[in-house]
Simulated assay, not measured.
Amino acid sequence: MNSRRLLVLAPLGLAAAGAAGFYGMLRGMRTGDYDPRGVPSVLVGKTAPDFVLPPVDGTGKPGFATADLRDLPGPILVNYWASWCVPCIVEHPQLMHLAREGVPVWGINYKDRAKDAATFLARHGDPFARLAADEPGRVAIDWGVYGVPETYFIDRQGIIRWRWAGPITADVLEHDIRPLLRRYG
């Protein structure tokens, strides 16, 4: 085959491969084998990576470190969030509900200004028992955070048992978090 013919056929081959992948994804969604929201995490089943984060200024909440995630009195949720994050507003009522029920929610404010974070919490309520600042976002990289909001369920021994990328909705609360609380509580 000459090179001119290959140049014409290459885009067709790429389009066919893309179509086959899209078809496979649609089939998987129909059978339940493919979850478009499922973003894998290598941390599930392991302890959190080493970190030390300062508190968010102006909130009066302590920051935290990896050492604080060991030998807990019960399971906790660690929630990455930011004041500029629209989905964080969507999930905030669920976090407030969990906090009112006594579920410890520890926040990591991601790439945000302390003043904006404090204003957000004053406006929407503060569900966080502890609140750390990851202004440069370096710790989030170690955790494998794709974007905010993102939530991790950590058991008493400090093992990450579950991760959710995206806002916690009422459905996620009932079908994912509540069973984890019963199992590890």
Rank of each mutant, 00 (worst) to 15 (best):
D57L: 14
P127I: 10
C88L: 07
V44L: 01
L53R: 02
I108L: 07
A122F: 08
V78Y: 12
V148T: 15
A140C: 04
D68A: 12
D68Q: 09
H97A: 15
I168H: 07
I159N: 07
L72G: 10
R156F: 06
A99T: 09
P73M: 10
H92M: 13
H97G: 09
E150Y: 08
T66D: 13
V78E: 11
R113Q: 11
V139F: 03
L69N: 06
M96Y: 10
R161S: 10
L43C: 03
C88W: 07
W162E: 06
E135P: 01
A114G: 01
C85S: 13
G158V: 07
R27Q: 14
P75W: 10
V44C: 01
L43T: 05
D142M: 01
R70S: 10
G137R: 00
F120I: 02
R156V: 08
W162I: 03
L72S: 12
P127Y: 12
G24I: 04
A165L: 14
N79F: 06
W143C: 01
L69A: 07
T169C: 11
G60W: 13
G158Y: 08
R156H: 13
D171M: 11
C85V: 08
G107E: 13
V78G: 11
D116A: 14
H92S: 12
V52N: 13
Q94S: 15
Y34F: 15
W164E: 13
H97E: 15
E150G: 03
D50P: 09
V52P: 00
R123K: 15
G74R: 15
G107W: 14
D134V: 03
D134I: 04
P167A: 15
G24E: 00
F120G: 02
D171V: 15
A170C: 05
